[in-house]
Design a protein around this nucleic acid. Structure first.
Length: 806
RNA sequence: GCCGAAAUGGCGGAACAGGCAGACGCAAAGGACUUAAAAUCCUUCGGAGAUCCUAUCUCCGUGCCGGUUCAAAUCCGGCUUUCGGCACCA
């Protein structure tokens, strides 16, 4: 079969016959299968796209053949930094470049032969999409879930521009190598923390990989404790968050983040210069370095003191870069006797180490970080840690200097970008009225085309007069548009809601329809999105639900991560490493069916691994063998009584049906294909029989074509036509397993002696545990193995083994 | 550094909830067919050893060290290496 011709032929027919369009008349049997949409930073699909879309399409086709009305849309996540950087480098406009890339990728995606419903395509950089991204922003704004505050950005003092983390290499600008600073800018945030608790609890309800849920749990980072207020000598006050209020009497210093708002005020005159220097140093250190637990702790005494809220002692105030403004209150209390980090810090700066928690007898070593019994803690001495936490927080509450608090590591989501290629933020800044949302009827706020991208210290849009100058929708006075654009994660936080109603020009989506189409039944994409995209999408869903637009709580009922295909050298594929493998050469040679089949057969889907094309010929051979035996069966004549050979083949066939169906449910493509190979092998074996039953063999061959169809769609469609099947093979039902055919009279089990396999025997398959034990002990072989030693114990596992302990 | 994963023959990978390690393939070797090659088909294929030396048996073997168990690739403790993420790549 000329697979490449066959692929073209069926792609054309499928498109003409609209085989892949979703049937909106039959939503009750819908199955929403979604792959993460692609980012068109380069024109061509890479192996990663193929690995995501090919196998998932096999799953979708399998589900379709099981009778589901499958909705599998595709689109493009088209805004983002790389297109803009490319424009700065080459002068090609991001829009032109992006749209050209999309056009190429769309054709390639069609050539994969996936059953994508292109009538539902979305492209996030088009005004008919980002209009609704802006609408989303306005709804969050109206519901007090969008707000502005100051936050640090990476700032290159030489390029005069904000840098993405990716553009900072070892603390320097990737373009000019100047030292990067952190600088504060006023920026928009989404209040994802308002949903922290629900985002945490919702994880229990969804069918996601445990590791992903665990990562999200840790990312949200709930800790239960208290906020304790420390007053300073000059009457200011600040709060610290702690989970160990029981150690409060052991506090010997407090530490503020260098960026803490009170630092300047609390700095003694003699310390000012040193403090400035320290602040500058920390501004140049990355957060990852600052959080390192092995890096030597540094800090600086500010020269002023706080007052201990219970003892009234004077406590020195330090700044240290291991304290982050973005976590908790940006200040911590130092309890050297009961915290590793504080212990280290106190030893380095000669601070008192005061033990206030006693452990069991003999556990005298410091730091002692476990719970215990309080000592030297005034009225609380003698209490256990847990009780003391409560009691101390209660006491602080009556004094007005503390309260219990749940703290989350999760921070609000910074969505402002000082860049061009994104959805403009639909806010107008009026000198009189302040920040005014753009009225919904004025959306979209269109991104102007004629632009200068050269970085010079401002957002590109701020320099575009015709964009930035407008009038206040409230008072009509001259006003300025917000010149920042939205993080592209905002676009991708709701695209799955747009797909089923992608052409709606009145609303982002029709709630009634979306409530029937969602949640997504199977979402497939990379694990690298575990904490950000997947969390943001959940947040959007919950926020829209609370606004009344949706009636479900979670966007993705079930989630699968494909693994990463690495370069042949085991490293991540990258141009700079020169280890990029292009799918195109393989498709040129073998066609898309063989390529996707190999991706499924050569790797464990969830694991991925280094690229290696050793097995690609094998799947090509498998397809040839399958074709040959199917055509041979259909050219056969003759009949006979169904005998052992037929029963054997029937058993293999039904076992294959059962295993393939079960493995596909869990994306076990490699084992599914292995089972299909076994079936083909069994058919060749049957073909050796001197007497065959043609009708039986044809039925088996017909089932084989159906079984292969989701894996090699074009090939199977062609073969189906050749054996006289009606259009289309994908309108047929996937074969079902006949359990009766699987029943065998005898089953081989292993005989173990003291846990080592000594023999294999056939036993009647229907024996239960006790019967099996008795049966095996009567065997002569077993007597020989026991060599007259007394049998101490027998463990029988029906269908598997019998272990005899002597 | 922190969070999350992974490690199985020469190679890709199987092994469902602790129950026969190596399914299915690749590569390799031998053979059949052929004038020859390709293709195809058949056989062997973790390591070491023993024997009445090619379907008989023994020992070792799932990254490393230890433990639990009648039984561990699988569970527990401690390492090593590799991969994903760490909030402005998406």
């Amino acid at each position: 079969m000329d697979l490449k011709e066959v692929e073209k032929k069926w792609q054309k027919i499928w498109e003409e016959r609209k085989l892949h369009e979703f049937d909106y008349g039959n939503i009750s049997s819908k199955l929403y299968v979604l792959e993460m949409f692609s980012y068109p930073s380069a024109a061509k699909l890479h192996i990663g796209h193929w690995y995501n879309y090919g196998p998932t399409d096999t799953y979708a086709r399998f589900k379709r053949m099981q009778g589901f009305n499958v909705f599998q849309p595709m689109g493009f996540d088209a805004f983002g930094l790389p297109a803009e950087n490319y424009a700065i480098k080459t002068g090609i406009h991001p829009k032109d470049n992006t749209l050209a890339n999309i056009a190429t990728m769309r054709e390639q995606l069609k050539a994969i032969g996936g059953m994508f419903d292109w009538s539902a395509e979305v492209v996030t950089c088009m005004p008919d999409y980002y209009k609704w991204t802006q609408w989303m922003f306005l709804q969050l704004y109206k519901n007090s879930l969008a707000y502005r505050k100051e936050a640090p950005v990476n700032w290159c003092p030489s390029c005069q521009t904000v840098l993405a983390n990716e553009q900072v290499i070892d603390g320097s600008c990737e373009r000019c190598h100047a030292k990067v600073l952190r600088k504060n800018l006023t920026q928009w945030f989404f209040k994802i923390t308002a949903y922290a608790e629900e985002l945490l609890e919702g994880l229990d309800e969804i069918d996601w990989p445990e590791k992903t849920k665990l990562m999200q749990r840790n990312w949200i980072g709930k800790s239960v404790g208290g906020e304790i207020e420390f007053k300073t000598e000059n009457g200011d006050s600040f709060k610290v968050f702690t989970t160990r209020a029981d150690t409060l009497f052991g506090v010997s210093y407090v530490v503020l983040a260098p960026e803490h708002e009170l630092v300047d005020k609390l700095t003694a005159p003699g310390q000012r210069e040193a403090v400035e220097r320290y602040k500058f140093q920390s501004a140049m250190t990355t957060e990852i370095d600052r959080m390192s637990t092995v890096r030597e702790k540094t800090g600086l005494f500010l020269g002023s003191y706080a007052i201990h809220p219970l003892t009234g002692e004077k406590i020195p105030i330090y700044i240290a870069d291991y304290v982050l403004v973005s976590y908790g209150t940006g200040a911590v209390m130092g309890v050297p006797a009961h915290d590793e980090r504080d212990f280290e810090f106190a030893k380095k700066y000669g601070l008192p180490i005061k033990r206030v928690i006693k452990g069991e007898e003999g556990k005298d070593e410091l730091p002692f970080v476990e719970p215990g019994v309080l000592v030297d803690s005034g009225e609380f001495s003698g209490m256990g840690s847990e009780a003391a936490k409560d009691a101390i927080m209660e006491k602080l509450k009556t004094l007005g200097s503390g309260q219990k608090k749940v703290n989350y590591r999760l921070r609000d989501w910074l969505v402002s970008r000082q860049r061009y290629w994104g959805a403009p933020i639909p806010i107008i800044h009026c000198p009189r009225c302040g920040e005014v949302p753009v009225p919904e009827e004025d959306l979209p706020v269109e991104l102007p085309y004629d632009m200068v991208f050269t970085p010079d210290g401002q957002s590109p849009l701020a320099k575009c007069e015709q964009f930035v100058n407008t009038v206040c929708p409230k008072c009509g006075a001259p006003a300025k548009r917000d010149s920042d654009t939205l993080d592209t994660f905002v676009c991708s936080s709701w695209y799955f809601l747009r797909y089923p109603d992608a052409k709606n020009s009145q609303k982002p989506f029709d709630s009634e329809l979306i409530n029937k189409m969602l949640p997504v039944d199977k979402y497939v994409g990379g694990a690298e999105h575990a904490c950000m995209h997947l969390l943001y999408a959940r947040f959007f869903t919950k926020a829209l639900r609370d606004m009344g637009y949706l009636n479900f709580d979670e966007p993705f009922k079930s989630l699968v991560h494909q693994g990463v295909i690495l370069g042949p050298d085991g490293n991540r594929m990258s141009k700079s490493r020169g280890n990029v493998v292009s799918p195109d050469t393989y498709i040129e040679k073998y066609g898309t069916d063989i390529f996707r089949l190999y991706l499924m057969f050569g790797f464990s889907y969830i694991e991925g691994g280094p690229w290696n094309d050793d097995g690609i010929k094998a799947v090509s051979r498998f397809i040839d063998r399958a074709e040959k035996i199917v055509l041979k069966a259909f050219s056969m004549e003759g009949s006979k009584q169904i005998g052992p050979a037929e029963r054997d083949l029937d058993c293999v066939k039904n076992y294959t049906i059962k295993q393939v169906s079960a493995d596909l449910e869990v994306f076990g493509f490699n084992t599914s294909i292995a089972r299909l190979m076994e079936l083909v092998n069994a058919m060749y074996k049957y073909d050796q029989e001197s007497q065959k039953d043609a009708e039986f063999f044809k039925a088996c061959a017909r089932d084989l074509v159906l079984l292969i169809a989701p894996f090699a769609p074009h090939f199977a469609e062609e073969l189906w036509e050749m054996i006289g099947g009606p259009f289309s093979v994908f309108k047929q039902r996937y074969p079902k397993c006949d359990e009766k055919a699987l029943v065998r009279d005898e089953v081989e089990i292993a005989i173990q002696v003291n846990g080592k396999v000594r023999a294999r025997v056939n036993v009647p398959s229907q024996l239960d545990r006790e019967q099996l034990e008795k049966y095996v002990l009567t065997l002569q072989q077993v007597e020989e193995l026991a060599q007259g030693k007394p049998v101490k114990k027998v463990i029988a596992v029906p269908g598997k083994l019998v272990n005899i302990v002597l």
